[in-house]
Design a protein around this nucleic acid. Structure first.
Length: 281
DNA sequence: ATGGCAGAAGCATTCTGA
């Protein structure tokens, strides 16, 4: 089962590239970020024609997340819920559409677009850390239900120096600071692991290249898009890769898709053998 | 220290991103 995440930086501008990629890769679940479109304007039909269900949580111009899936999503939730920080009802948490979650055969897919944070001395940075703290308490709640989790998306954080092409240059700065890394580790705790690092221990693997300064051509990138999975799923993981090829497209997103291949057959064989659980054209 | 590049809104230029 292929599960992918991709910050597409506008669903409307990138639609044909996304369709091409789906036809090429055939993912079972695709989590999108920065769709930048209100729900009623999301090009749902383009995905339905390919046999996918679509769940969207968007807004005008900024942010926006979506889940495209061959299996119908269950228990779809938009935004944070059931966690103590969200109960404070912080308005900005509601206004910025950055999280959508859904269950697929007992696995909870959580698709996030973590705030960028601008720079460490800005108000936006405080919002980023608050948002991550809220995500941590959201996951604490999920923990109590003993669910298998796949937390994926654009985290806007390089977890380690080897996830940055020039770590010295960016040391302590935005996406590389200890404050952000600690906040991220507090989300992951001991329950979620970085799927990519189960296979690849070396530097030189990037999921984002700045549009500026020929960053892609010079391969000056960062690894800030991640797929974290519950420890219990690690034995089911067949691969975790970054597909950098779409970054070479004409008018590309600045992010590349990341995907895992999960062997879920033995978790619930009946579910996957029941054709009613899949999309019918 | 700053700008560089891209998208959306909307029609000149600003805001935001990373």
């Amino acid at each position: 089962m292929l599960i992918a995440t991709w910050n597409v930086n506008s669903i409307r501008t990138r639609l044909s590239q996304i369709i091409d990629w789906i036809n090429q890769v055939n993912p079972d679940i695709l989590c999108l970020q920065e769709t930048k479109v209100m729900d009623e304007s999301f090009p749902v039909e383009a995905f339905e024609e390919l046999g996918y269900y679509v769940e969207v949580y968007g807004q005008k111009s900024y942010n926006g997340v979506a889940i495209i899936s061959k299996i119908k999503a269950e228990n779809v939730k938009k935004g944070f819920y059931g966690c103590k920080d969200f109960d404070q009802n912080i308005e900005i948490f509601i206004n910025q559409k950055r999280l959508i979650s859904a269950d697929f055969n007992g696995i909870k897919i959580i698709n996030v677009y973590v705030p960028n944070g601008s720079s460490l001395n800005s108000d936006k940075f405080g919002y980023k850390i608050n948002w991550l703290n809220c995500l941590a308490s959201f996951l604490d709640e999920q923990d109590k239900k003993d669910e298998l989790i796949c937390l994926m998306g654009d985290f806007n954080i390089a977890p380690a120096n080897l996830d940055i092409h020039d770590p010295k240059k960016y040391e302590g700065g935005i996406m590389a600071s200890e404050i952000e890394r600690n906040a991220l580790n507090n989300v992951l705790k001991n329950r979620l692991i970085d799927s990519f690092r189960l296979f690849e221990k070396n530097t030189g693997h990037w999921s984002w290249w700045d549009y500026r300064n020929n960053a892609y051509e010079l391969n000056k990138g960062w690894r800030i898009d991640h797929i974290y999975i519950s420890k219990e799923l690690s034995s089911k993981l067949k691969s975790s890769v970054i597909d950098s090829s779409p970054r070479g497209n004409l008018r590309p997103s600045d992010h590349a898709p990341v995907m895992i291949d999960l062997n879920l057959k033995d978790i619930n064989e009946d579910f996957f053998e029941d054709e009613d659980n899949f999309f019918e054209i």
